[in-house]
């Protein structure tokens, strides 16, 4: 075999680079996500439930919000009729944030754990953000 040294060195570098994520995260314990529901609005609810079942919301909230944004902007449908027959305005600000006013303890818990970065907040105003902005 020609250039044995170069080839082996190259392979080692290649293997090192491709497994970099493992080396990078070694020894770093990731805290298990712990989304919190104790906001003033939720505390006041007699029966604590979201617009759909907990399981559905955990699994499909992203598709649901995606569908909502298109329905509202492109089909001017603004109302969501839940499977239990309740009406909700399809809006982060007017509906979701009413109860989930704790972005850090709720949304970010799983989002940071899964390292997803939804860019909703570039435009949509986070609960409490307008106050922080006003104080600047």
């Amino acid at each position: 075999m020609y250039d044995r040294g170069k080839i082996i060195a190259g392979l080692v570098v290649f293997a090192g680079l491709t497994t970099l994520p493992f080396w990078y995260n070694i020894g770093k314990a990731r805290v298990r996500p712990d989304p919190r529901l104790d906001t003033p609005a939720i505390r006041q609810m007699k029966e604590k439930h979201c617009i759909e079942s907990k399981r559905f919301m955990i699994e499909y909230h992203m598709q649901m919000l995606n569908g909502w944004r298109n329905a509202v902007v492109r089909d001017y449908k603004t109302t969501y009729v839940s499977t239990s027959g309740q009406y909700f305005t399809m809006s982060l600000e007017d509906t979701c944030f009413h109860c989930h006013s704790n972005e850090k303890q709720f949304c970010n818990q799983c989002h940071s754990y899964a390292d997803v970065k939804p860019y909703c907040w570039e435009c949509h105003v986070k609960p409490g953000e307008e106050i922080a902005h006003g104080q600047r």
Binding site: E52, F56, G67, N70, Y76, T79, V81, T83, T89
Partner: peptide, 24 residues
């Protein structure tokens, strides 16, 4: 196609319907 909103049903997930507001 998911963006169309119909994907929820396609995935076999139970979900509600989207309508325009009665007061619109």
């Amino acid at each position: 196609t998911k963006l169309g909103g119909s994907a929820l049903a396609a995935q076999g997930a139970v979900s509600g319907s989207l309508i325009s507001s009665p007061s619109a």
